[in-house]
Design a protein around this nucleic acid. Sequence first.
DNA 1: CCCAGCATGTAAGAGGTTACATGATTGC
DNA 2: GCAATCATGTAACCTCTTACATGCTGGG
Lengths: 186, 186
Amino acid sequence: MALDHALLVSLLEKPSSGYELARRFDRSIGYFWHATHQQIYRVLARMEASQWIHADVRAGETAPDRKVFTVTKGGRAELSRWMAEPLDPEGTRNALMVKMRGAAFGDPRDLIAELEHHRATHANRLTCYRIIEARDFAGTLDPQRALQYMVHKAGLRFEQGWLEWCEEALDLLRSMKPVTQRRTTS
Amino acid sequence: MALDHALLVSLLEKPSSGYELARRFDRSIGYFWHATHQQIYRVLARMEASQWIHADVRAGETAPDRKVFTVTKGGRAELSRWMAEPLDPEGTRNALMVKMRGAAFGDPRDLIAELEHHRATHANRLTCYRIIEARDFAGTLDPQRALQYMVHKAGLRFEQGWLEWCEEALDLLRSMKPVTQRRTTS
DNA sequence: CCCAGCATGTAAGAGGTTACATGATTGC
DNA sequence: GCAATCATGTAACCTCTTACATGCTGGG
């Protein structure tokens, strides 16, 4: 259960409502931990019951009510516990790689459009990350910032990696003749 | 439901029993799509019911019975359908990045051991990938092999990337003084 | 007035994890 | 004889995704 801990870190960085967290999980934090708002609300409710977080209801005079969550001592203790426990290596799941291998059993060129789309996505993200880098991580950084920058750099590195790989894969696919179907054993 | 399609590709590459698939998902295919044997058996049963695959029971004279699955025409059709449908970009989930940001709320140096372990893991995998590369992807490759090699190259690229990032992150962590706890808002 | 955005949720179902269960063979 | 490996599964549980549901405010 690591979404819990991602939310705890996020709330330590800035106490927020579920809605705000959901939006942040579409951006900065979401670049390395994805979650939908339904998931977030459910986990927040669970963590409040466990007293890891505390809700401060801001009744909306004008806007709708907001429940602003802050991390309690119990929550910090739980985070420490989790931080100390070694991570079991997470199994990756990349459907594009499945498609690449699957391409051998049809016309590989059919994958070109998909790859081009991926390349464009990674190029966009890379541009976006570079803008954020220039804006948020220039000059001298305090420890918290430095750690965030290191995470950001992982993002940059991997978008760059994907981009280069997409180029390479596109070169390969484009060089392949429309092949005849490979033998089946059906 | 992409495990289904990963299994279809895997069975097209080589008709196999559930057990064999489970072992392959701990190795080559598993490098980009992880699955446990329980999951595999369940999906195989479902796909057999859908007639995407066909079981050929090899009664074991000596060894236990094996059910060898092959992909049917229906299975190939389903794979084609899935291959043609655009992939929605998958949300990444990397707990190590959560820990990096979480390190700001404790002593960052506590993460050093974890990072060193990750670095060693990636270094090992990289070595392993390079051995496989030299063994399986040398010389001229047929289309299927070329596609597999491209997937393999993604693996190499990302292990390399992680390795470099781990080094960088370790440099940062080691340069950080044991910090005092940051302020809380509990 | 309507639509976009703010803000919070419920419910059903698919997918994934962990623990349990069985039985045969091969090598020590 | 015992442990490891081969080989197949069931059951319970948790997590995640998708669809639905509600109501308010501000701008065109």
